[in-house]
Each structure stands twice: as C-alpha cells, then as structure tokens.
Computed example of a mutant assay.
Amino acid sequence: MTRLLLIGPPGAGKGTQAERLALAFDVPAISTGDIFRYNVTTNTPLGLEVKSFMNAGAYVPDTLTNAIVADRLKEADAATGFLLDGYPRTTDQVAELDRLLGAEGTQLDVVVLITADTDEVVARLLKRAAEQGRADDTAEVIRHRLDVYTEQTAPLIDVYSARGLVVTIDGLGAVEVVTDRILVALAERGLRASTTTL
C-alpha cells in the first residue's frame, strides 16, 4: 500500500514525475485536472457541475472537488494505493482528505515536495508556451502563477511538515535523475518501488 501526494510549482516536472512514480509503485496517478476533464467530456452529473463553474471562469469549489476525489478514491484501482497530484490545494481540502482516509483507517505515507529555481521554471514554461503557441503565457503571467502557487501551497506544506511527512526533492536535472532522487528518498522512508523499469 503506497499513498503519495506530489506537490510542486508549475513547470517543475510534477506531471511527468507523477506518471513515472505511478508506474514504479503500480498505483494510479490521480490528477484533479484530469478528473475534471474526464467528467466534463463524459457529461457525468459531477462533470456538468464542474463545467458550469469553468464556463463562468470561476474556481471549482472545495465541496465539488472533494466529492470528485472521494468518488475517484473509491474505484478499484485505488484500493492498493494512489498518487495524488493537484489535490489537496487548500487546508480545507487537507481536512477532507484526512477524513476520507481516516474513514478507511489509512493516511498519506509521504508528501513529495518538488522544488525548482524560479528563473529556471519561468524559462521552462516560456519555452513550453512558445512550442504550444500560447502567447498569453508571458513571463509576468507565469511569475504570477508561481506566486499564487507559493501562497496557496505554503500552508499545506506547513501542515504536512508538522506531521513529518514531507520529503523535499530538487526538481532540476534530467527526468530520470529526478525520479531516482525521489525513489531514493521514498526508500529511506520504507517505500520501495515495485518496479525500477521506467
């Protein structure tokens, strides 16, 4: 049973590492962004609710996000563990996740905090924006997103650090090198990957 939470700023390679770690530990990578998109495209009742907020340019409220994650964690593939990416984002969501896991008699094993130099992340995201033709992703916009991330996630990191759950990983370097850093840190916490073939 492996229950991980991945936290990191935009552009730190969190999505890539989430995929690799999910494969290494044979657990599903659960991304709230992916869940929202899936529910919207398949027109589920939750998806229709999410779409109404997205169309209005509003944040999806905690209650709805919590419901969607709770629903996903009940699926069979999450019974032996999971990797959360993008949830929780607020201290209220932390409390709800605690409640959900507590009801099952479980809790998070480790919170992996991926860090990256701000200038390096801005350069990465500008390069990605240029490749994807996203002219609205300017350096100023990206730095604002990074500031919002820091402001929103700092309280979460404090909560999980106080519980002794956080391992901090340098997110700069080759993808494989960063994965190895994470696997070593997790092994030191007693979590060993079921496969090292990534």
Rank of each mutant, 00 (worst) to 15 (best):
A139V: 13
D71R: 11
D71T: 07
L83G: 02
V110E: 06
L84N: 01
E151N: 10
L64A: 06
A135V: 14
Q107K: 14
G86C: 05
G102A: 13
V148H: 02
R143W: 05
G47I: 00
T44M: 08
D71L: 09
V122C: 08
D117N: 15
D117Y: 09
T80N: 12
K51E: 01
T118R: 14
D119Y: 10
N43L: 12
G133Y: 09
R143Y: 05
K127H: 10
A58E: 12
P61T: 12
S52C: 04
E120R: 13
Q93N: 07
T91F: 13
V112A: 07
E151H: 12
D119I: 11
R124L: 09
Q132C: 05
P88A: 06
L84D: 00
T44W: 03
A70P: 03
V60S: 06
A76Y: 00
D117W: 08
V110R: 07
V122S: 04
G57M: 03
P155R: 01
D98T: 03
T63E: 13
L46C: 01
P88D: 08
D137M: 08
L97D: 00
L46P: 01
L146E: 02
D136Y: 04
T65L: 11
D85E: 12
A116F: 14
A129Y: 02
L126H: 04
A129F: 03
G57H: 02
E104F: 08
A78D: 01
E120S: 14
L146T: 03
P61D: 09
R99F: 10
A67P: 06
T90V: 13
D98S: 04
L125C: 10
A129I: 05
G133L: 12
D147G: 14
D137T: 11
T118V: 15
L83P: 02
P155I: 01
D109C: 12
R143P: 02
R89L: 12
V110P: 08
A130H: 07
G133E: 10
A56Y: 08
E151S: 14
T115S: 08
D137N: 09
Q152S: 13
I114V: 15
D119F: 07
R143H: 06
V111I: 15
N43G: 09
P61F: 15
L83W: 04
A67K: 14
V60Q: 05
L64P: 02
V60K: 05
D62A: 09
A70Q: 10
A154K: 04
A67W: 04
A79W: 00
A70S: 15
A139F: 10
F82K: 00
T90N: 09
A79I: 00
P88N: 06
S52Q: 09
A129S: 06
T115V: 15
E131G: 11
R99N: 13
G86E: 01
Y149A: 06
K51R: 13
N66Y: 11
A76C: 02
H144G: 11
A135C: 08
D117E: 14
D119S: 11
